[in-house]
């Protein structure tokens, strides 16, 4: 039903988006918590920086990644020297690019959700003997779950559809960094590729729909529990 090239593109896309989500999840929650609950100097600046990938052209983000994480970049050189890791032109690099682009969406959703958590419940938990970490894990995080799910799906979808930063930083290598959007782009560039492009287009729509429905279902379950209904 699906051609090998299509399956390959789908698998690479899911892998890239999955890894992208995995590496930004914990930092995303951390930063969202910081933004929602703490006052510190430079908070406005950090807020601006966080939103930067949303407003910059993705190609610029990809180029900045290349400058910092590339073989000549400061971080890139360190990564190479310390761990023997080189990110550009690899699927891991594509995951980094997708993650960077998805980060603001995740942080925003989780932050809004955290701000909606009643701090009085956390205070109540602490008077019951729960330390800060236990309060976070047993009260704050579960109450943030609907937002976390929404943010996670948004971030996953963003990483899945990422094009500009990925092609700039990780290039468009078949079997390595050629995700669905990149494969689609390649087909459009190829004379006579219209039919195959249409198929990829349909596949993208199906994947997007599945993740949306799944997240809606999960979020509804989580909300139902918070409102005291058995889901």
């Amino acid at each position: 039903m699906l051609t090998d090239a299509e399956i390959e593109a789908i698998l690479i896309s899911l892998q890239v988006a999955g890894v992208a989500l995995a590496w930004i999840l914990i930092p995303g929650i951390g930063v969202a918590w910081l933004m929602a609950r703490r006052e510190f100097p430079g908070k406005a600046l950090l807020d601006g920086l966080l939103h930067l990938p949303l407003v910059l052209p993705p190609v610029v983000v990809g180029y900045l990644l290349l400058l910092t994480l590339g073989s000549q970049g400061v971080v890139g050189q360190w990564l190479n020297a310390a761990w023997g890791v080189s990110l550009p032109f690899t699927w891991q690099g594509a995951a980094v690019a997708g993650g960077v682009m998805a980060f603001p969406l995740l942080v925003r959703a989780v932050r809004l959700s955290l701000e909606a958590v009643d701090p009085r419940l956390e205070a109540a938990a602490s008077t019951l003997g729960a330390g800060r970490w236990r309060v976070f894990v047993t009260i704050t995080l579960p109450l943030t779950l609907p937002g976390l799910l929404t943010g996670g799906v948004l971030a996953f979808a963003r990483a899945l559809s990422e094009f500009g930063a990925t092609i700039t930083f990780a290039s468009n290598i078949p079997g390595e960094t050629r995700t669905l959007p990149l494969a689609l782009y390649s087909l459009i560039q190829t004379p006579g590729g219209e039919a195959a492009a249409a198929r990829l287009c349909a596949i993208s729509v199906v994947i997007a729909m599945i993740s949306l429905v799944a997240s809606e279902w999960l979020a509804r379950r989580a909300r139902a529990r918070l409102q005291g209904r058995d889901a």
Binding site: A124, A125, S126, T127, L128, G129, V135, T138, L143, Q227
Partner: peptide
């Protein structure tokens, strides 16, 4: 959390995602 003072707040402040049993055994 180390004071061992049980507080009953004006609003009950029960944890909405725990059942009554879970609320009771929380601390």
């Amino acid at each position: 959390h180390r004071r061992r003072l049980g507080v009953v707040f004006q609003e009950a402040r029960l944890f909405p995602h725990y059942r009554v049993r879970g609320n009771l055994t929380y601390g």
